[in-house]
């Protein structure tokens, strides 16, 4: 089996996983719209929460994995790890776009404003922009080995930056609700809603895995093409 075949097989497996996740997503929508009660103060607008929060989770998970893989790359210097880190970063960007578009739609109905310069909105936007920078920089370096090293440096710095941005959040006044799930005391949400949310988080995580597998397969295929091209010239 050549590298190309293995990449194609990986892409197919990624497609299957993505398909399962998309079917799961349909299930989440049905459960959120039909089988989960309407929130008392926010009304139906709160339903977007079941997409917004899991998308945010998937985006931050993706960026965290990019950061950790960057660290591992500098240690092992394995090109595969760099490609997976890059794939994860790109998928993270896609989820960030979901998070950053569903957020304002929810915000407009509940807070009465599309965007507020609230610290958490601002900080997630900056993490998003940081990884856009990561992506843009990858495009601006020709040598693959140098690109991998530079990306790893940015990835690690990003990993360290996130807690600082979080601290900035707590010091700045904030509109964004406090965490309802990941906090020391028990979740402040009725059980039915919590189940919907957690299902959605699970589905988004599977979706993330499916996307990364496919994106990584593309990276391998591109590598194979580039090597073939340089072998000819």
């Amino acid at each position: 089996m050549t590298r190309r075949d293995r990449a194609l097989a990986l892409a197919r497996r990624g497609q299957v996983i993505t398909g399962i996740a998309l079917a799961g997503l349909v299930g989440v929508f049905i459960r959120a719209l039909v089988f989960t009660p309407i929130e008392r103060t926010q009304g139906p607008a709160q339903k977007i929460f079941y997409v917004h929060a899991p998308a945010a989770w998937a985006a931050l998970l993706a960026f965290a994995i990019t950061g950790i893989l960057s660290l591992i790359y500098l240690w092992l210097k394995d090109r595969k790890i760099d490609s997976i880190a890059a794939a994860s970063a790109e998928v993270g960007l896609a989820f960030s776009v979901v998070m950053l578009t569903t957020g304002p739609i929810w915000g407009k109905t509940v807070w009465g404003t599309w965007w507020s310069w609230d610290a958490r909105l601002t900080s997630t936007m900056f993490i998003f922009l940081l990884f856009i920078g990561y992506r843009v920089m990858r495009g601006a370096v020709v040598d693959p080995e140098m690109r991998a090293r530079f990306s790893a440096v940015i990835g690690i710095m990003g990993l360290v930056l996130v807690p600082f941005i979080h601290m900035t959040v707590y010091l700045f006044r904030t509109l964004h609700p406090d965490p309802v799930l990941l906090k020391p005391s028990s979740p402040s949400m009725p059980g039915v809603m919590l189940v919907t949310l957690l299902t959605s988080v699970g589905v988004f995580t599977v979706l993330y895995v499916g996307f990364v597998m496919q994106r990584y397969a593309i990276a391998i295929l591109r590598d194979v093409k580039e090597e073939a091209a340089s072998a000819v010239s």
Partner: peptide, 10 residues
């Protein structure tokens, strides 16, 4: 600036 500014936020 694209890479540096996010780090300058805190």
């Amino acid at each position: 600036p694209v890479l540096l500014l996010p780090f300058l936020i805190p």
